[in-house]
Design a protein around this nucleic acid. Sequence first.
DNA 1: GCGATCAGCGGCACG
DNA 2: CGTGCCGTTGATCGC
Lengths: 254, 254
Amino acid sequence: MNAEEAKKTIDQSLNQAQLIMTIGTCSVKYEGRAASKLSNGDRMLIIKKDGTFLVHQSKGMAAINYQGPGAAILTSIDDFGKLTVSAIRKKKGEISEQITVTFQEISFCHSFDLQDDKKIQLFGTEQDLSNLLMNDLHLIEPGLVPVQQESPLAKGHIDILARDRHGALVVIEIKRRQAELNAISQLKRYVEEVSKRKDCKVRGMICAPDISENAKKMLDGYGFEFYKLNYDASHEDTKIKGLEKKQQELTHYF
Amino acid sequence: MNAEEAKKTIDQSLNQAQLIMTIGTCSVKYEGRAASKLSNGDRMLIIKKDGTFLVHQSKGMAAINYQGPGAAILTSIDDFGKLTVSAIRKKKGEISEQITVTFQEISFCHSFDLQDDKKIQLFGTEQDLSNLLMNDLHLIEPGLVPVQQESPLAKGHIDILARDRHGALVVIEIKRRQAELNAISQLKRYVEEVSKRKDCKVRGMICAPDISENAKKMLDGYGFEFYKLNYDASHEDTKIKGLEKKQQELTHYF
DNA sequence: GCGATCAGCGGCACG
DNA sequence: CGTGCCGTTGATCGC
């Protein structure tokens, strides 16, 4: 396909705010928060009507170069008759960014009018798990009652804050996947902050489907607790299937 | 476009491991680690030759539903003559996942042969900054010498480990963007671990272009230091433009 | 393969 | 608007 032709297609479609797809051999250059270079190869360029700019290679999930919504799109034909398409982002307070795609060959360039105002409904988020646990704190231990959900702290927010039957506060951090070191650090921060403000015993607790070995050691070191949270999120109504306390390994005592 | 026709196009292209793009009105369902529903609207479905499966709406950067490389793709025509395309992922040890796209209308379905074995070159990563700083530790303070880069710890790895002119170890954590609470927690982990193993004073230090207010407070609380790292990563050779120590605010003393 | 972390992270929600 | 953090995070690198 002709470069002039493609340029015309893109320019017109931009005016009409359509989705534009261009496929061809191109090189890509990026300058902004970082910088990148990608030499000639066949790629797919997607320009959405909100300014989203995506360059995809033939493999891999992530766009290899991109620009978020709001980018200004510019097209031009260079001295060698090659089409270049640029996405430029200039926001005050942010680093100015620019991607330039230079096409050697264009095999396809077309625009599509996509009508779609539907929003996705997502189930099984951490928030969902939190809501479920809120109503089932007895699964953890008898007498545990909710104090606050999503308690906003100066430094982050606690998933669930509860009180046990002895009057101690329990900071519960929920993870929808394996808890790792940073989850323990997070919990530590919350427990420290709550301890500073409340004059009572404060327990720290992680509820997650799994925990890494190092994270478990760190957890034990702080005297926190881990509950294995078994759940099924593959349906609209996420279900908690089990919640069992994992004691410290006996080996820790030898 | 006819559903049968589109199915044939997709099936044939899958055999040839090409990139396939289908555009039309569809609903999308996902079940796996989480679950989602998206009712009818116009979308773009991209199937890459490595099994990557992407559903894009007309706006926004992220694919609204996706499946990574390795997904098995299935097509079928349902009782109402509608085309459904599914991506299924079954890996042992992982949760089985499935996306199903049901097309009401198909406006475009075509495959493309994208030849591309080029890899992107990225500049200005945290690693690059680390390399630069390694050779310019004097920018931080006189007499600071490198001990080890990317020092592997049981719990993570230290960006730069150095020794100051008084013999104290300095754990340096570099961030390419604003340091926030979790960066401080991270640094704390490393300092704790080094302290445990070395019998000398251990300093903690963050080098980042900025630091959030709370992170700064937490940093001060631990007695760590913040150096404002001014750099330009918008070119192939990233440059450090300045590195200035930010003292504690005087207000902290009142 | 597991684990820890980075990412041009993006996106969201809440102060 | 900043900030903290989740994400079906993904991608990478070291052990």
